[in-house]
Design a protein around this nucleic acid. Structure first.
Lengths: 242, 242
DNA sequence: TCAACTGGTATACGGCGTATACTTATTCAG
DNA sequence: CTGAATAAGTATACGCCGTATACCAGTTGA
């Protein structure tokens, strides 16, 4: 009955599943999933590593629980009239969670099995599409097309080495780079984003809207999602024939 | 001059950078990147772990070299008249490489810095787009939109737990699942893919073509890629207004 | 021939997840 | 209230990992 008081009186509060998971999430927010070892979590709780195993089976399960915990926030996304707007809102809600907890991206990708919250998110997206009148085929293909984007993240794909400090050396490095990768340099120096960090949110929404508007158009023109004789599932576009 | 013979005579061929990398690739093909530890590579070469460090700086660099090695194959992709067809062909070439070497996906995603072959692939895609007349803005956004797909892979996002063996137990598990995730079950049981493993290649090409055709249409209708007052970069679609 | 260099080895350190066996704290029945 | 049962936490150890350091032997070049 008053067990909790007893525990506090005898030195420190007892461990429980929730406290282990919360501590692990804090640690992961600060130091990433790599920095969230059983030993680090235990230390932060002022406890022996093996104490954790009285509350969770192993590290893999801990990561699952951490993930499900932060993904719960996605569920409370307000509805919308249009299916695409609703899907859009839900995916952007996922993105907000993933931005706050960057390690969740790695967690999603490294899980061997889908966790309940992962399934729930996907189920809700598919339900919105069905409600919007999409065929099962189109729902299926669309989920594939959205793939990782449904979680609100894209991988950074252009982490380039930082230029040398010495100006002369830097100039030579830039020149070498321009010779090896002219198109990259052309884009970087021509577009309005030149030199500036680009707006990740805007880029994410661009790609998302590109996919969603494509799916919408397919739903209007080719709802049964047939396959043409060339093996392409999309209605042939002028520039894509061949 | 005859150093190599000497080496052979004295027991076994000498180690070199290439042999280390090749062995590591073989190991990764068979057992994944996780299974490719310095110790495992050394053992396969019948050598002490520390011997490897005479030829490569550390494991991180080894993975870089492995990656660049297999990505070289992408370069020899035949040209095409249309920019989108050419991009499509190159990405599908990347996909063929990544299918043969599944660990390369993890390698690309875990690298802190882009390697030369990674940059070369991206540069060539961007060059094709520039040649096709796309604006730097559109090239930029398109590269973001293609993101991981430019490497020819999508993450499996629905690894569901395998059903129990006992038939009765399985029936109950299915029922529970259907109650929790009705849309997932609806899709799985309604679409022609019901029960069957779906065609990964076809799904990949679907998503790729969805993106490419969307980019092509933008290039025709809105080549400068303006941003509307709602912050959307795409021309407003009927169903996406809101 | 002998010094310098290079390739390979031996040993060790600090990290990791976790199995096993134990002690201590708490709970609950009589 | 007491004592047995149970749960929580600890101690120790094992086998992995990457790699620093020190050493030794084979090869090369002067």
């Amino acid at each position: 009955m008053y067990g909790v008081y007893m525990s506090i009186r005898s030195g420190r509060p007892r461990l429980d599943r929730v406290r282990v998971i919360d501590t692990a999430i804090d640690l992961a927010d600060a130091h990433g999933l790599e920095g969230t070892s059983m030993r680090n979590v235990a230390e932060k709780l002022d406890v022996t590593p093996m104490a954790l195993y009285k509350h969770i089976a192993n590290r893999s399960q801990l990561v699952d629980e951490m993930l499900d915990r932060v993904l719960e926030e996605i569920a409370s996304t307000p509805p919308a009239d249009d299916w695409a707007d609703a899907v859009r809102a839900r995916i952007l809600a996922a993105r907000r969670v993933l931005v706050r907890h960057p390690w969740a991206r790695d967690a999603i990708e490294s899980r061997p099995l889908a966790t309940p919250a992962v399934l729930a998110h996907m189920d809700s997206l598919m339900a919105l599409m069905f409600d919007g009148g999409l065929s099962p085929e189109l729902v299926h293909h669309s989920m594939h097309a959205l793939s990782t984007r449904m979680w609100g993240f894209t991988r950074d794909v252009l982490p380039t080495p930082k230029p040398p400090d010495d100006p002369e050396e830097r100039a030579r490095a830039m020149a070498d780079f321009a010779e090896s990768y002219p198109a990259i340099v052309r884009m970087a120096t021509t577009s309005p984003h030149a030199g500036l960090a680009c707006d990740d949110d805007a880029e994410f929404e661009f790609a998302l809207d590109l996919l969603l508007s494509g799916i919408e158009r397919l739903n209007e023109t080719n709802p049964k999602m047939g396959v043409d004789q060339a093996g392409r599932m999309l209605p042939t576009e002028p520039g894509l024939s061949g």
